[in-house]
Nucleic acid binder design. Structure first.
Lengths: 106, 106
DNA sequence: TATATTTGCAACCGAACGGTTTCGAAAACT
DNA sequence: AGTTTTCGAAACCGTTCGGTTGCAAATATA
C-alpha cells in the first residue's frame, strides 16, 4: 500500500480524527458520531491511519480503541526541521544586515 | 480548487521540489532536471504549490524563479503545535508519577 | 439459543490525481 | 525577420481517493 504520514494527514477528515483522539482513545463508533459520514467511511480513514502507524489499536472485547501514536507525528516535525535550519540561517543573514546598518548609524 | 498546504505536501515529488528550492530559487527547467519526469509534470506540481502559496514566483525575462514561502510552511508547524501541548502534558503526568515514586522511595 | 451491537471487508461509483503529449505565447538570440 | 528557448494551458489516460451500500464475523445481551 505504501502509505506515508504525509498522505495520511492530507485529508481534512483524517486530521480531525487525529485531533479528536489525540487526548483520548476512542472507538470507531464514537469517532463517527462527530462526523457527517457513515461509520464505514470513518473506518476506512482509521485503516489508512493505522497502515502508516499514525494510530494504534487496542481491542477490549468487541470494541477497538484507537489511539494516536505521538512518535509518528514527530516524523512530520522531523521533516520540518530541515527547513527550520534554513529559516534560521536566513534570519541570521537578515540579522547581520540589521547589525551592519546599526553600526553604520553610529 | 480548494488546495491546502497538507494536500500539497502529500506528494513525494512536491516535497522533493520544496526541499530543492528551499535554499535557492530555481526555474521550472532547472527543477525538472532533478527528476525523471517531464517539465510539464513539474510545472503542474509548481502550480499546485503556488495555488496554496507554498511557493512564490518571480519573473525575470522569460524565466520564472520559484521560491519557497517559509511563512506558509509555518502553518504546518502551527498545526503540530496542538499536539505538542498534548505530548507535553502527557510527559508532565508521567513526570508527576515518576516524582511520586521517587518521593515514596525516600 | 436467539437477537442486537460493534466492527472490518469487498464491491461499486463519481471525482480528483499524476502523468504524457500537444499546442500557443512570450522573450532571447542569430 | 526567423529561429530557439522557456514556460503555462488544454486534452487525454490510467490509477487512486473518498464515499456509500451490503455483508460476514465476533462479542454482548435477552
Amino acid at each position: 500500500m505504501r502509505r506515508d504520514v504525509f498522505q495520511a494527514i492530507a485529508d481534512p477528515t483524517r486530521r480531525a480524527i487525529i485531533l479528536l483522539i489525540a487526548s483520548q482513545a476512542m472507538t470507531p463508533n464514537a469517532i463517527a458520531e462527530h462526523f457527517n459520514t457513515t461509520r464505514q467511511a470513518v473506518s476506512k480513514h482509521l485503516r489508512i491511519l493505522a497502515e502508516c502507524q499514525l494510530v494504534t489499536q487496542e481491542q477490549t472485547g468487541r470494541e477497538i480503541y484507537y489511539q494516536l501514536n505521538g512518535d509518528k507525528m514527530k516524523e512530520i516535525d522531523k521533516w520540518l526541521d530541515q527547513f527550520r535550519k534554513i529559516w534560521e540561517s536566513r534570519f541570521n543573514e537578515l540579522d547581520k544586515i540589521l547589525l551592519t546598518l546599526k553600526n553604520d548609524k553610529k
